[in-house]
Computed example of a mutant assay.
Amino acid sequence: MRIEGSSAVVTGGGSGLGEATARLLAKLGAIVHVFDRNGDAAEKVAGDIGGVAISGDVTSEGDAAKVMDVAAKAGDGLRILVNCAGIGMAGRILGKEGPMPLADFERVIRINLVGTFNMMRLAAERMATTTEREDKARGAIVNTASVAAFEGQIGQAAYSASKGGIVSMALPVARELSRFGIRVNTVAPGIFMTPLLKGLPQETQDSLGAAIPYPSRLGEPAEFADAVRFLIENQYVNGEVIRLDGAIRMQPR
């Protein structure tokens, strides 16, 4: 599907993978709506790329509807949704201080999985009313999972469950939305150079990179963004989950 001239929403667009995606889509001619809980970060990125900053929470129906309504009025309607918003939390089910608080598990599931679903359902509603483009296309949705969906490490029960849910949604949602001309795909990144990892000592970063078969380094956000671009542009890729991880397979610890 054509990116140029398309109205796009990128969640978590104020930093990391979302920021890189927002910047690339804008460079390719999209009208990018940067949606992030951090309003200042959203404003900074949107200002740099000539986009629109909207502060909000992916788990809020009102916030999600607000950004979708704004995006639906741009260009020839909302065409692209990239879900990058999410949190990571480590915690054992049974630790030294007892069982994991249920609220911690619920928070990760709500933001990562429920938030992704919330944005998808409201984006699909707007996309379904747009005019058909070439090959009957109306829209493209790209979600962000993780290799933890497949090889979750000790302490990643909540995170792995949330990302596994995103992986499991890929095919049924793609099948359901196909009648509207809306494709749904997922990227499952490995270890990427996000703001969180940039704060780690260089020795730690090098150690993480050495565990990756090839290339033996952390992934660059721009490489994630390029995978998103491919999934949007290639009209025959649908219902797919692409691992972007340098062939790493996570060990238990």
Rank of each mutant, 00 (worst) to 15 (best):
148 A>L: 10
203 E>I: 06
77 G>Q: 02
99 P>F: 04
177 L>C: 05
75 G>V: 12
1 M>L: 09
47 G>R: 02
208 L>H: 04
126 R>K: 14
183 R>S: 09
127 M>P: 13
57 D>L: 08
70 V>Y: 04
164 G>V: 07
145 A>K: 00
185 N>E: 01
223 E>M: 11
157 A>W: 15
1 M>G: 09
117 F>W: 14
244 L>S: 02
11 T>G: 03
27 K>E: 08
154 I>Y: 09
218 L>C: 12
37 R>H: 06
88 G>N: 05
176 E>G: 13
147 V>C: 15
117 F>M: 15
9 V>W: 00
247 A>P: 08
178 S>E: 08
101 P>G: 05
147 V>H: 13
103 A>G: 10
127 M>R: 03
77 G>S: 03
78 L>K: 01
74 A>I: 05
50 G>N: 01
147 V>A: 04
134 E>H: 11
49 I>M: 10
177 L>M: 03
55 S>C: 11
187 V>Q: 00
220 E>Q: 14
92 R>Y: 12
45 V>T: 12
216 S>W: 05
67 V>L: 06
166 I>D: 01
19 E>K: 06
111 I>K: 03
189 P>E: 01
204 T>R: 12
23 R>Q: 13
122 L>M: 13
35 F>P: 15
144 T>Y: 04
105 F>A: 00
219 G>S: 08
177 L>E: 01
96 K>S: 08
200 L>A: 12
26 A>F: 07
167 V>Y: 10
97 E>W: 05
167 V>G: 11
84 C>Y: 07
155 G>Q: 01
149 A>Q: 04
51 G>C: 08
184 V>P: 11
149 A>K: 03
129 T>K: 15
72 A>G: 11
133 R>A: 15
240 E>S: 15
